[in-house]
């Protein structure tokens, strides 16, 4: 017995060792990233001035910030329509995508639906937005519906494939231990598929954000940051356009970083516990 124990002991020792190293490398990486961002910002400020480009095309950073400050109140008022639409659509896309993905992934008879959704993924769904905005009006409801449709597809596809890729052996052994269909779902399938499902949520989240902004840009009365961007563009207020773009980038960054952190956590948990063949 002792030989076997020794092997495992060494392995576990090996796990613990690289921890501090990884920490420092992560810190240097963050430093590099911040340096790159700072460099870009400096370039943004300096290059337009050096080029003396026309102010309608390229605006230095300081001028964009000033334009943002000038337009502060319409921009703040537009935040909520955009943000609320994103949140509602995310909720819908994630819920429907996860539930639908599990249903389709676990029942062989519904597998054919994956083909349909796969094809749908390739269609530029934005072509149906004009229809939706005519049926429902150009307000929040049509925005939320369109963004939900846009985001639900990758969530559903990745969830279904995550469920299907769960090890058949886990399924079998749980059955042999007398797991009910419900226990099979909650104690085996869901935890096993979780890392893949979260990566699907991230994909869907990105699409929801795109869809909401696109809707707002297409329908000038729907309100929100996208609508503002279009309005400033028409008014040749390039500085404000840049500022609004920064706001959208901030949205994207916050959402992606949050989901990325969750994804790393879930993937890290499962990596820590994933079975891998080891001799002995």
């Amino acid at each position: 017995m002792s030989t076997v124990d020794d092997v495992a002991g060494r392995q576990v020792g090996g796990f613990a060792l690289p921890e501090p190293e990884r920490d420092t490398s992560r810190r240097t990486l963050l430093g590099w990233r911040l340096a790159v961002v700072a460099l870009l910002l400096v370039c943004w400020e300096v290059v337009p001035r050096l080029m003396s480009a026309p102010s309608a095309f390229v605006v230095p950073l300081s001028a964009s910030l000033r334009a943002g400050a000038d337009q502060w109140s319409p921009i703040v008022e537009s935040l909520w329509p955009t943000l609320s639409a994103i949140l509602c659509a995310l909720l819908f896309a994630w819920l429907v995508g996860i539930v639908g993905g599990f249903v389709i992934g676990t029942s062989p008879r519904l597998r054919f639906l994956l083909l349909i959704f796969g094809a749908l993924y390739a269609v530029p769904l934005v072509v149906v937005y004009p229809l939706i905005s005519v049926w429902l009006g150009p307000g929040q409801v049509s925005k939320v519906l369109f963004a939900s449709l846009y985001g639900v597809v990758p969530v559903l596809l990745t969830t279904a494939s995550g469920v299907r890729s769960v090890d058949e052996g886990l399924h079998r052994s749980a059955l042999s231990m007398g797991a009910s269909p419900r226990q099979l779902l909650t104690k085996v399938l869901i935890p096993a598929a979780l890392p893949v499902v979260v990566s699907g949520l991230r994909l869907g989240g990105g699409l929801v954000l795109i869809a909401v902004i696109v809707c707002e840009m297409l329908a000038s009365t729907s309100g929100g940051i996208g609508t503002l961007i279009t309005a400033y563009r028409v008014q040749f207020n390039a500085g404000a356009v840049y500022f609004c773009i920064l706001v959208v980038l901030a949205f994207a960054l916050v959402m992606d970083q949050t989901l990325g952190a969750i994804e790393r956590r879930v993937a890290g948990d499962s990596a820590k516990t994933r079975t891998q063949p080891t001799p002995g």
Binding site: D167, G169, L170, R172, S173, L175, S176, M177, G178, K187, V188, P191, A192, D269, S270, T273, R274, T275
Partner: peptide
């Protein structure tokens, strides 16, 4: 069907739940 009260199975590749 499975009879968990009387019959237990040990599989070739252990089939442990990796998150437990």
């Amino acid at each position: 069907g499975p009879q968990p009260d009387q019959v237990a199975v040990a599989f070739q590749d252990a089939c442990l739940l990796p998150w437990r």
